[in-house]
């Protein structure tokens, strides 16, 4: 399963990641981090929709997002 991890201490809540996610699973959370920014999150029910495209990580100015992509099964498309 592809997934992302958002470092909430680094996230500044700019929400640029929410504008580039092709499946639209990145949203603003109701939580504040220590700096007082409302951080971005992927809701638990949307986690399996991540495609591992890395778009959010590419546009994140604060390098707060790490992306893991699931290996394609051998012989699969």
């Amino acid at each position: 399963m592809s997934r992302i991890a958002i470092d909430e201490a680094r996230c500044k809540g700019c929400l640029l990641c929410t504008t580039v996610c092709p499946v639209g699973i990145l949203v603003q959370s109701p939580r504040f981090n220590q700096q007082g920014y409302k951080v971005a999150e992927v809701r638990p029910e949307d986690r399996d929709k991540c495609t591992g495209c890395t778009s959010c990580a590419l546009i994140c100015p604060d390098l707060a997002i790490t992306v893991w992509r699931s290996k394609k099964p051998k012989g699969g498309a």
């Binding site: 399963m1 592809s2 997934r3 201490a9 680094r10 500044k12 809540g13 700019c14 640029l16 700096q35 920014y37 591992g52 890395t54 990580a57 590419l58 100015p61 604060d62 390098l63 997002i65 790490t66 992306v67 893991w68 992509r69 699931s70 290996k71």
Partner: peptide, 23 residues
């Protein structure tokens, strides 16, 4: 069964920047 698709390059320091959000 997972590969690390994106991580910070080592040369970029692992610290918070002083830049404003969205800079």
């Amino acid at each position: 069964d997972e590969i690390l698709a994106f991580d910070r390059p080592e040369v970029v320091a692992d610290r918070a920047t002083h830049y404003c959000p969205g800079c």
